[in-house]
Design a protein around this nucleic acid. Structure first.
Lengths: 198, 198, 198, 198
DNA sequence: GGCTAAGCGAGACGGTACGTCTAGTCTTGGG
DNA sequence: CCCAAGACTAGACGTACCGTCTCGCTTAGCC
């Protein structure tokens, strides 16, 4: 996707720096939070000039976002299960667990910062949100095929109802995020959207 | 609530300043957003010293939050209707409309900032969220009494499922916030939580 | 001359800071030189924010120039003597001594920096050079009246010939700056410019 | 001086680069001055890597100094004349003209920068100043031989008195640099240092 | 009517991070 | 070994804004 049509000239960027910066950023992020995290501190801890960072990312938020997405990329796949809705249920439990832990803090911070930075928001949407929605969409379609959900649903709205409550509790700081909660949301949704006549 | 046990001495505060500051803050907020809004700018535009502001509010976020709450306070009441669930449906439509407009931007900013400022988050919870949840709770209880919702529900979770999707779409910047969306969420929830046997 | 027609409003500047900054600047200047002197270091050593400095002076050079001029202001007066040319001779010895010491370093740096900063150059001219030239001019006029110098001289050029060699040796780093040198310059000039017919 | 005892191996340096770099450096120097001149800019304008420059000169100042000296090298020789002091007079006029023009600016900048950079100062002394002083010294000795100057003079000081005023006016930005000024300095000096009894 | 306490406009203050800039060095692939 | 390109470290720069403090002045209520 990132096709550079220019030939590679000059000293190539040191890929280790990318990784080291993101790692350090995540570490500091967990320790002191987004606001108090400074790129000066990151640069110093990595033993790198600030320019090496600003050459790669436009600002602090972008660094952290990239770090987060790189870290979390492979996780939160849908578990395989007997039926699509069971797979969904299990995945929602994982999400609850994820949100309740350290990742939750990261998401809080990044989503918060995204409210003020459209680029960041876009990165969050494109690299975190949409891929996960796509996966969910596939599962929901399977559930429709399997006769567990009605065929006339707006599946986007279904997704919003399934996952909205997670973000809500995470951001608003109200209620708990555990599998009990997750299961309630799931079962209510499944009941509400169940294939009629069942 | 704000019981001052000291006798009022000295020059009393000029109440006009409170209003003017909040008004100016809201105006700037809409124009340039929370981040780029400075209290210096507010103070100057009002023709007031910064101290006059900091005497009234502890920080920038508090000013904006107060402005927001003062502005929005009377709105978003539950409309009266034939049944509780219909009243709920109408209120959700109002909420969708609210979130889609200028208020949505304010909420975005304040909720975003709340991720980094616990005091702000608390103010948001106590002065915006909880009052509205209480109202919703009453309506839901009425709906239970009226036989439209099962009696064994965790109503807090019900609220999360009803309103979570709104915040989700607002914060994530995905999808639209209109009465069609609102109605879908409502009807799915009502179906999912309907009194059994109906 | 510095008549401010605006009424004094707001918190007045703390005059101690002016003095402390200049003092610290001079101290650091002597220790590490102009180039390696940073206003960050000055600010920190004084326990002052950088803004407090930038509010008073536009840049590093201005701080140092001001410090220098404040420090040196009262010095290098013409000593009284039997005749004008003797007073001149004594003053030139003082100047040689001045240039050979710490002040010489300051002047080197400031004059060097002035080559790149016209404002600075102007300050140097107006607050250091011209006052001293005026004094010298008076002495030279007296010497003319006393019959020790011809009356048809361009006294500005005389001054250049008297003091040019000092700056030359200071800036070029060639030769020594002592009273022997000073006396040679003086006697050659006096001989060259002596009233004719002697 | 720069005797390399290693056999020439590998690709030979491209001699065109030396000239092109110095030319570009001079051009930029005139346009934006020493301070704002960057070797990055020079390298780019010449279409050369920075290393090609740093392989040839140790730093920015050296490049510019070299450019200046290469440019100015052949000029400002002593014109031949009937007597040594007349030759001196003519040369001083040339110097005045030189200082008043573009070369003056270069010298201003280089001498200014020399106040902060000992290497540069040394280059300036060794490659500009001293050669010219040597030439002047020869002329002054001839003048002594020809009976126009006393034999007991410290000729170094004589040189300082002859040329100091030029640098003084150049650096301090006071007075004009023309042949009238030059002649005044010359005649005063000649008179002051004339062989006694003449 | 004078006293006292607090409010007020203005703006200085310490602190802190920002993102930019440049010097001089290093590292690619290729000649 | 040279070259073009450009990444790299180091570190100062000048700006911005926060929340606090201080000045001279004003405005109330209390004695």
């Amino acid at each position: 996707m990132k096709t550079e049509n220019t030939i590679d000239r000059g000293r190539p960027r040191n890929a280790d720096i990318d990784a080291a910066v993101m790692k350090s950023a995540l570490k500091l992020l967990r320790k002191i939070g987004f606001r108090r995290l400074t790129l000066d501190a990151v640069a110093e801890s990595v033993g790198v000039g600030k320019m090496a960072i600003y050459r790669r990312w436009p600002n602090k938020a972008a660094v952290v976002m990239d770090a987060f997405l790189t870290l979390i990329g492979p996780e939160s796949q849908f578990p395989s299960a007997a039926s699509a809705i069971i797979s969904l249920k299990l995945q929602m439990r994982l999400q609850a667990k994820l949100f309740a832990g350290d990742y939750g803090k990261l998401i809080k911070a990044l989503l918060g910062e995204s409210q003020f930075d459209e680029e960041l928001a876009e990165a969050f949407r494109n690299r975190w949100l949409i891929p996960r929605r796509e996966m969910t969409l596939d599962v929901l379609k399977a559930a429709v095929d399997q006769g567990d959900l009605r065929a006339d649903l707006d599946l986007d709205t279904v997704i919003d109802m399934l996952y909205g409550p997670f973000y809500y509790r995470l951001q608003l700081g109200i209620g708990t995020l555990d599998s009990s909660f997750s299961d309630q949301v799931w079962s209510a949704a499944i009941t509400g959207f169940r294939a009629s006549g069942s």
